[in-house]
Design a protein around this nucleic acid. Structure first.
Lengths: 186, 186
DNA sequence: CGCTAAAAGCAAATTCTTTGCGTTTGCAGG
DNA sequence: CCTGCAAACGCAAAGAATTTGCTTTTAGCG
């Protein structure tokens, strides 16, 4: 844990500007249609000049992707249900629900639309972390638990693919996916 | 088959303009960096005024998504290898390769970035069609073959998820995915 | 052959984006 | 504490893209 998200030094002016711009962007996204949000608007809301944002982020997509990645970072440890299977099921259901909400879909799109694969990878990394935490607890209890990549392929990928390209899956389908993940490791 | 892709009447001026704009967009995308392509540029290349494009597509993303969806439409029937498993494997490997290319990734991103879920759904529909064609041939031979949604969940979703969020899968991993799809239907 | 509605052209007005230059800010060395 | 330095910001002008009102063209139809 030696790197910052996107700002140079922790307490400087740079960090303050970034914080206020992020907050302004989040506020505006909550308040108005995503298509109406522009850099000049965000700049005004944040109390900075547009050129500051242009120089730092380049374009709206990059900024929104930055904001989205930050919001996508898990803020808590997966709930503990007593078994690895239960933990994974609970996590997957919540993940599916969050990501299929309007805001969730918009955040995913923003992250994917940005240049370079850094944002998406970070999101995938967050998911891996969460699953790893669950897997570790399961291992500590001596349970069998699927490999992380198995969970990504069998649970996370279908959830996300359906949200992006088709129809979001209901909770029962998510449960089925979790079962198939476990059936691959027994 | 009663609807057109995006143009009103088949032979009118509208259709000609759409065709030339699509072609211009494709040409420019092939010739220069995607970030450099703008609507005024495409308009000039297509020999129309920018306002025509703005009125019809609204913004660059919509136009590029339109173009990408068209390019994503499969132009041939899946190759026949003698077995459903072989057909699916061949199709999946080719799909994975096409989609993980620079152009493929850009097209997916363009499709996902557009407003409304129409583009992504159409892409998913194309995939379904291809898989259905393979499944039908398998059924005609009396083979067992996984349900289309199983193939989507176990084969297509992981391929696409990895391309978008992580690292593209190699051919051997794709083969493994195909195996798991068949293991679910035996 | 004219009529009509939809779509394209044109051009002015608006808004967004880029850029050069001067100023501020926080850090570091003296 | 003070001063120098580099990074980042503000400001404003220039440049590019987007929107819009109005006119003209075009394809289809009676």
């Amino acid at each position: 844990m030696a790197e910052r998200e996107a700002g140079p030094r922790p307490g400087g002016r740079s960090a303050r500007v970034q914080a206020s711009v992020h907050r302004a962007a989040r506020d505006l996204l909550a308040r108005m249609d995503r298509a109406e949000v522009t850099i000049p608007l965000i700049a005004a809301e944040a109390g900075v000049t547009p050129s500051t944002i242009y120089r730092r982020w380049g374009e709206l997509n990059e900024l929104l992707a930055d904001v989205a990645v930050e919001r996508l970072r898990p803020d808590m440890v997966p709930v503990e249900t007593g078994s690895g299977r239960g933990d994974l099921l609970a996590w997957a259901e919540q993940y599916a629900e969050e990501m299929s909400s309007r805001l969730g879909r918009e955040m995913i799109r923003d992250v994917l639309a940005a240049e370079g694969g850094a944002g998406p990878r970070r999101c995938c990394g967050y998911v891996r972390q969460q699953i790893a935490a669950i897997a570790e607890r399961a291992a500590a209890r001596g349970e069998v638990f699927p490999h992380i990549d198995t969970v990504l392929d069998r649970v996370v990928a279908p959830i996300v693919y359906r949200i992006l390209f088709d129809e979001a899956l209901g909770a029962e389908r998510v449960g089925g996916l979790v079962e198939t993940a476990f059936s691959a490791c027994a």
